[in-house]
């Protein structure tokens, strides 16, 4: 409770106490500008991280629930082997739905490569069977063995081969986004520490006078801490607003655009960047307080 009161007191401030340290225009502007730039970058890092997370989750859930069986057999045997595959699937625990793709669906799959009006019926194209799993999934090794016995031309593709590296790549992108945000926070802390240290050094005489009239270190530090916290908050709020506007102006997500057009926030995730100014202010608060108390120990 006392910490909350202290924080509220810090935000509310004391105009008379604030005036004891003279204003420093140039460093103030630099701090605001740097905080704005860092917040702008943090918005993009956050967008990257959240979009990668969404992608990994989507790939993980969508692809994990589906698989395909490809049946390559001489023309006279395709229909029989398809029936055998469907029979095997009907009696396989963990399979929710299995259906052979019809000619129109197979044509649609090939259309991006061969164009429209492809005579699917006249080509030796394998028959595809789409398999939808239940939540618990099926035993893929067991299914492969049964398919080999019942339908020698059937090959099970459970997407694992290419799903795993995609998900791993998306998760690494997400981790990179988080690391970027942490690095940005560290850069803000370093920048505020440097600016606060410069301000403390420039105000050595003021600090000397304050000490002589009985000011405690905490009081002197508070005058600097509040100032730098508010500067970081102001700058980061501006940078965040600009960053969010820039993300909002990115093209909408589309299948043709792939991952890049989906780089943004979705739904409630638009609220997440609003935490950036608060986080920047917290980082500035801790960095200034630490720098001020350490520097004040060095003053006689």
């Amino acid at each position: 409770m006392s910490r909350l009161r202290a924080l509220l007191g810090l935000i509310k401030g004391d105009p008379r106490a604030d005036r004891v340290v003279p204003p420093s225009g140039f460093t103030a502007q630099l701090t605001v500008l740097s905080a704005a730039a860092m917040a702008f970058l943090a918005v993009f890092a956050l967008a990257l991280s959240l979009a990668s997370g969404r992608l990994a989750e989507r790939w993980g859930t969508e692809l994990a629930q589906t698989s395909t069986i490809r049946i390559s057999a001489p023309p006279g045997q395709v229909e029989r082997q398809t029936e055998a595959v469907l029979e095997v699937l009907r009696t396989t625990p963990g399979v929710a739905l299995a259906r052979p793709l019809d000619a129109a669906e197979q044509r649609a799959l090939l259309e991006p490569w061969f164009g429209p009006d492809l005579p699917v019926e006249s080509l030796p194209i394998p028959q595809l069977v789409e398999v939808i799993e239940t939540a618990s999934g099926y035993d893929s090794e067991g299914l492969r063995l049964r398919l080999r016995a019942e339908a020698p031309g059937a090959v099970l593709d459970d997407h694992t081969r290419w799903r795993r590296p995609l998900i791993a790549a998306a998760e690494r992108l997400r981790a990179l986004g988080v690391v970027s945000i942490l690095l940005i926070a560290m850069a803000v802390a370093a920048m505020v520490t440097l600016a606060a240290s410069a301000a403390l050094a420039a105000n050595a005489q003021v600090i000397g006078v304050l000490r002589l009239v009985g000011a405690r270190d905490v009081y002197i530090a508070r005058a600097f801490v509040r100032r730098f916290t508010l500067r970081a908050l102001t700058g980061a709020a501006g940078g965040t607003a600009l960053g969010m506007a820039a993300v909002a102006l990115l093209p909408d997500a589309s299948a043709a655009g792939g991952f890049l057009t989906g780089l943004g926030f979705a739904g409630w995730a638009w609220l997440v960047p609003l935490a950036i100014p608060v986080f920047a202010a917290l980082v500035a608060f801790l960095a200034t307080r630490n720098a001020a108390l350490r520097a004040l120990k060095g003053f006689t």
């Binding site: 005036r19 004891v20 009239v213 009985g214 009081y219």
Partner: peptide
Amino acid sequence: AENVALPLVVS
């Protein structure tokens, strides 16, 4: 006035 009041402010 502010300088004279400074000890009151800091305490």
